[in-house]
Amino acid sequence: MVKKVKKSYNNSKTINKVLIHILLILISLAMLMPFFFMISTSLKSTDEVFAIPYKWIPEKVMWENYVYMWENAPWIKYFANTAIITVAVILGQVFVSSMAAYSFSRLEFKGRDAMFFIYLGTMMIPFQVVMIPTFSIIKDLGWVNELKSVIIPAFFSPFATFLLRQFFLEIPKELEEAAKIDGCGYFRIYWEIMMKNSKPALTTIVIFTFMWTWNDFIRPLIFLNNSETWTLALGLAKFQGTYTTQWNQMMAGSLITMIPVLVIFVLGQQYFIQGIVMSGIKG
């Protein structure tokens, strides 16, 4: 009797799984579309880029687009600048945000929640309207056309702080209490309990910050002046002329510059493992 029930249960489970796969494959196709589109465009002649009706596969495959793309800008320099900026921003942001998040989520003091909301409010102001005053500050600091103009302001991310705060809130109080009894100070609790139990959240921040900083356009454009300090995203914009755009080369460039972000994403995924917090409690 029990066996029979289990079998039918397993059968319906298999059907479910097949349905889920079909659904996921459909979603994936929709999601991959721009990717196919970019690959296809990057290999087309200008004439075919806008062929009507649209062609998925170029009639004449133009690998040389990648060569032209490569010759169009000092990509190695751009890559180095972008890498420096991205790594520095991630380190600084994780450091500043996690400390603030710990304070906002776990420490009791006067004005805490008000300060949190004010900090969160930073996100609610469109950059367009603070751009000129922000640039004035960068100028007063003497940072114009230096990488730190893009790096240091990005440390103070309400997004990362908010995300970590929400995750710190989920960490069971018991862990903290136990640590306190063991004589741990606040820094140890912050590091040993909060940080070590928030790997999925920290990974999320690393992925997002990497992606945003890597692709960031308007801030670097305003704060950095020329190819000495420029980033990949700005280099890509150089395919856009005053009136015309080299779409095939731009797509080629976009594809190449996307690769590091994809790699970080794939690497980051291994930290999405069930039950980190609970293993802490059991131990």
């Binding site: 450091f95 945000s97 603030a100 906002f104 009791e108 900090y119 606040y186």
Partner: peptide, 8 residues
């Protein structure tokens, strides 16, 4: 609380 918030 304030110390941790200081950089931010």
């Amino acid at each position: 609380g304030y110390t941790f918030l200081l950089p931010a």
